[in-house]
Amino acid sequence: MIEINDLIVGVEGLEGNILKGLSLNVPAGEVHAIMGPNGTGKSTLANVLTGRDGYVVRGGTVSYLGEDLLDMEPETRAAKGIFLSFQYPVEIPGVPAMTFLRASLNAQRKRRGDDDLSAPEFLKLARDKAAALKVKADMLKRPLNVGFSGGEKKRMEILQMAVLEPRFAILDETDSGLDIDALKIVAQGVNALRGPTRSMLVITHYQRLLDYIKPDVVHVMSGGKIVDSGGPELALKLEAEGYDAYEGAAA
């Protein structure tokens, strides 16, 4: 589904690179996890794949469903099924969550050449998905993320994913700020979306999330590249031994 080859990325206006030749291949239907210490470029990877400003690609390619991803505007990528669950979801004052969700869905549908979902159709869809994630109707009427707790914000991210039904979802530190009950609800929401045509990239520090979202492949990232890959057992090994063994491996 997505093939990243030898990707080299820096920050605009600065010398030096954050991603230093990263390669990664996530086939359709698989869930891959990326683990690694702070500052190794995990969030940079998420930002570059979704088209955030401020980064400069100095080498390598990203192919998504056979197309060059890096040439596309962020909204084009979204309409083609790329979704990012943000590490720090943004507060949008004055825009009710429901309004935003509907505008997003219809904007994506329009870009794909589909008709708008009618108001009643959308309402039913949003309510069903919200109930499954224990998101209260009251929360949908409030301005998006404004005054939400950390757990509420993450559940709102997963609700958006459930409504938008992306093909490739990146979950950036979705476990941060979650207590164990919220983590289970979020993981259930994510697992409900697993399927043969959908892939996911789960970025996390800790193995804990992977108890609930079982990955097919675990990658270790250090120094801006993937330094090791393996099955779920790799996450357990990292939890026990830490990242020390990989320090300097990328150099």
């Binding site: 088209g51 400003d53 962020p74 309409a79 943004v90 825009v95 935003f100 904007a107 958006q160």
Partner: peptide
């Protein structure tokens, strides 16, 4: 306008003008 908010909205599929319109109308 908040750049983070604009990017967040574009990541969800709104184009730049739509995102700005929503933010300005709310403001």
């Amino acid at each position: 306008l908040d750049d983070h908010a604009l990017f967040y909205m574009r990541q969800r599929g709104l184009d730049e003008a739509q995102a700005k319109t929503l933010l300005i109308r709310a403001f």
